[in-house]
C-alpha cells in the first residue's frame, strides 16, 4: 500500500511541468527514504534525477519499495487538474496496475480523484559518481533562464567558461555572436539574488542550448539554480525543492573532435 500526502501539491505540479517535455516515460521509485525518479531523455544526452524526501510529505506510507512506470505527459495532464493550493495525495494498492491522484481543495470542500494506468518501463538505473567540481555557480534561476533563452535565439550551443573574473556564456550563429558575462555579486539585499562562484580552477565546456532551455522549465521550483562544472564531464543543473529535495539535470558536454 502506498499513500503519499503532499500539502504543497503545487510542487508536484511544477516538477511534472519541468520534466514532461524532456522525458516521455519514467519509473517513480518509492521507498522509506522518499519518492524519486531517474531517467534519461530519448537521445541519452541528458539525465534527470528527482528526490522528494519522505519527511517533506504530511503523510508518507510506503509499505514496501515500489516502482511505478508512468507516462509523464499523461501524469502532467492529470496534475494540471489540481489547483495550485490543493493537497495532492498519491495512492497505489499493492499489485495494482493503476495509481490514483487525489486533489483536495484547501477548504476540503472539493475532492477529486484521477486514476491512471501504470506502465511497464524497463529502465536501468545509472550510477552517478560524486564528482569534485572545478566550478560551482549559484545564481538567480530567472537570470539563468533568461541567458539560455536569449543565447538560443543566436546560436544552438553555448560555451560556459568560469574564471576568477566571473562566468561567461558565449554562442555564435548565422546572424552573429553573443557573450554574457556574470560577475560574482554577493552585495545584494536578498541572498537569492546573489551570484556566487566557487572556482577552485578555471573551466570551459560546450553544451547544446536546447537541453539547458528544457532544464530551465524547473525555474518556478526555486529562486536559485546551482550549476556545477568540471572539465570533460556532464554539467549538473540543480533546483532545490523547498526543503523537500531537489531536481538535478545532467547534460553531457559537446567535445572537440
Amino acid at each position: 500500500m502506498l499513500e503519499l500526502r503532499l500539502v504543497q501539491g503545487s510542487l508536484l505540479k511544477k516538477v511534472l511541468e519541468s520534466i514532461k517535455d524532456l522525458v516521455n516515460d519514467a519509473n517513480f521509485d518509492c521507498s522509506a527514504t522518499g519518492f524519486s525518479l531517474q531517467a534519461m531523455d530519448s537521445s541519452h544526452v541528458a539525465l534527470v534525477a528527482l528526490l522528494l524526501r519522505s519527511e517533506g510529505f504530511e503523510h508518507y506510507r510506503c509499505d514496501r519499495n515500489i516502482s511505478m512506470g508512468m507516462n509523464l505527459g499523461n501524469m502532467a495532464k492529470m496534475l494540471k487538474c489540481a489547483g495550485n493550493d490543493d493537497i495532492i495525495t498519491l495512492k497505489a494498492d499493492d499489485g495494482s496496475d493503476t495509481v490514483t491522484f487525489m486533489f483536495e481543495s484547501p477548504t476540503q470542500d472539493k475532492i477529486a480523484d484521477f486514476e491512471m494506468r501504470l506502465m511497464d518501463i524497463d529502465s536501468e538505473h545509472l550510477g552517478i559518481p560524486e564528482a569534485e567540481y572545478h566550478a560551482i555557480l549559484i545564481m538567480p534561476s530567472a537570470e539563468f533562464a533568461r541567458i539560455c533563452k536569449d543565447l538560443s535565439s543566436i546560436g544552438d550551443t553555448v560555451v560556459i567558461s568560469v574564471t576568477k573574473e566571473g562566468v561567461k556564456f558565449s554562442t555564435r550563429g548565422d546572424i552573429g555572436t553573443a557573450n554574457v558575462v556574470c560577475r560574482q555579486n554577493t552585495t545584494v539585499d536578498k541572498p537569492e539574488e546573489a551570484t556566487v562562484i566557487e572556482m577552485p580552477e578555471p573551466v570551459s565546456l560546450t553544451f547544446a542550448l536546447r537541453y539547458l532551455n528544457s532544464f530551465t522549465k524547473a525555474t518556478p521550483l526555486s529562486n536559485t539554480v546551482t550549476i556545477s562544472l568540471s572539465s570533460e564531464i556532464p554539467v549538473v543543473v540543480e533546483y532545490k525543492i523547498a526543503e523537500m529535495g531537489y531536481i538535478r539535470f545532467y547534460l553531457a558536454p559537446k567535445i572537440e573532435e
Binding site: M40, L126, G127, I128, T157
Partner: peptide, 14 residues
Amino acid sequence: VNQQSQITSFFSKA
C-alpha cells in the same frame, strides 16, 4: 567540430 557526447559514456549502469 563539437561532437555531442552521451550521458551513458560518463555514468555506468548501477
